[in-house]
Amino acid sequence: MAISLKNTARLTEVQRYWELLYVLVQRNLKARYRGSLLGVYWSLLNPLIMTGIYTAIFGDVFSPYYGDSLVDYMLAAFTGLSVIHFFSGSTSQALVSVVGNGVLLNKIKLPVSVFPVAMIASNVFQFCVGMFPLLAIVTLVRSHSLLNVLALMLPFISLVLVCTGIGLFVSALFVFFRDLPYFYELVTFVLWFSSPVFYPKDIIPDAIKPFLTLNPLIDIIDSIRDIALDGRVITIWGYGQNLGGPNLIEVFLSLMYGLLFLLMGWLCFRWWRPRFMDLL
């Protein structure tokens, strides 16, 4: 047990955490883009090119599921890819963040969780300046409703919660198991293929469907597609059972899912935290 009595007017723990988060996010972004403002937009390149490839290869086959519209298929693939890309990028960067700063943690007393959280936060910033404006434009063109643009933020918040939870979990696990990146690559791959990113949901066999509910990204992708692409204005209850449409219930459920992931990730992190230092 350690009791620290403070008698000087220094930063509180919360202020310190915030300041640390700020400088670490700044460091991550500067390291990634070497000060070039356009640098952030390189992160758009990957999902845009993938969207192009999927549309070129699968567009004709799958467009009947999207009202025979190639554009609709393309937009569905793009929204799905934006979610998957954010998820795999942010969590795999968070995975190595605690071990990567092990030397530092052995020199100065720091709140360890700030490292994975800063990785997620850097990706949030990148998403907000790169991907989000694109999604917002698509939403505005489709639905002519600012309400939908605002609502678009909610499933994204769920995504950030899920990623933070998983990021905390894997960064802690990596301290103990250094071969985790190989396994995790497999996990993100499975999540990617089990999310209906480039194929329509309707082609999944009924026997498989229950398993897919375990994937936290599906609800988020569904919500974003409903809000951005459906064209109808978001309501609380949607447009009736068979009509679907963007609704807050779906969004609310994904938020709950996100909170659950965050809580589980945080608890694991807290639980394992005392044993980190022996292995860093």
Partner: peptide
């Protein structure tokens, strides 16, 4: 404060 003692107590002022 980098390592936490397994047993015993530590007090630091300042």
């Amino acid at each position: 404060g980098i390592l936490e003692p397994t047993h015993g107590t530590l007090r630091v002022r300042g």
